[in-house]
Design a protein around this nucleic acid. Structure first.
Lengths: 138, 138
DNA sequence: GTTGATAGATGTAGATTACACATAGCGACG
DNA sequence: CGTCGCTATGTGTAATCTACATCTATCAAC
């Protein structure tokens, strides 16, 4: 499933289509795991259903394993259901702390964008010229 | 909580300290350029002053060149001031479109985090157990 | 026994990044 | 003059990350 045909939206000429990368994928995964445990396949589905950009399931699995290696999540094999065994993941204390810190960083990131682009709303991005902070040229 | 001296001290085992990566660095740069033109060194300083995580100046320069290669920004040598020549960057129409699209994506990303973590505020992250979305076991 | 959905993982080429280092203009100082 | 220090922009390289294709395996339906 999720064969990428979900919603390939590229609104521009030929830029790299949006994808979930690094921090964004990582933290989305962590956020999903914050309220309930889940396994990779399920997380991949949630990602797709959340209206987020394309992702690669192989990357999802590898990202989860890497998160485990760094101690942000932990996992165990769940064989209680029929079908292939599932590796159930849950957020660790460290993962929770990491996520909190990330949210802090994200807040600053947002502040930068908001300071530059009024309202964070594409519709409001019209014209809004200001002077440079200190271009102090000429 | 996530006190995390965000300078170099890490509160956990051995997490990768926060850095500006890929989309985040790219779009912050684009956002800075949206309202006024600037050159690499200046952008790197603004990044640092914005309270954002560590970054690498080499990466900033390379990222800017790559953005130029894909047409999101354009540049020219500015030799009007004394000192080393500066490569002045400005956002192109394409870059503006890209940024707008990114803001759209970011909105969905935020929605996911907000849905999971109430209020986006670390203080409100206390306890908030819910049932899985569709763990549909048995 | 073949197909299809679920579930997880890896091989690999190409892209991205961090870190160290290189180049160059110019002002200040002795 | 020499050179130190700050400004300004890069590059070499190893490590890491990612996309895409491919692989194993369970189990239900046919």
């Amino acid at each position: 499933m999720a064969k990428n045909s979900d919603q390939e939206q590229r609104s521009g000429p030929e830029f790299t289509p949006f994808r979930m990368h690094g921090d964004l994928l990582t933290t989305t995964l962590l956020a999903f795991l914050r309220n309930w445990n889940a396994y990779g396949y399920q997380l991949a589905q949630q990602l797709a259903q959340a209206g987020l950009p394309a992702f690669d399931s192989g990357t999802v699995y590898r990202t989860l394993r890497q998160l485990e290696k760094t101690g942000l999540v932990s996992s165990f094999w769940d064989t209680s259901e029929s079908g292939p065994a599932r590796r159930m993941y849950s957020l660790t204390k460290a993962g929770d702390l990491f996520l909190s810190s990330w949210i802090d960083v994200l807040g600053r990131y947002q502040a930068v964008l908001q300071k530059t682009i009024r309202g964070f709303d594409p519709e409001e991005i019209k014209a809004d010229r200001q002077e440079p902070p200190r271009a102090d040229s000429a």
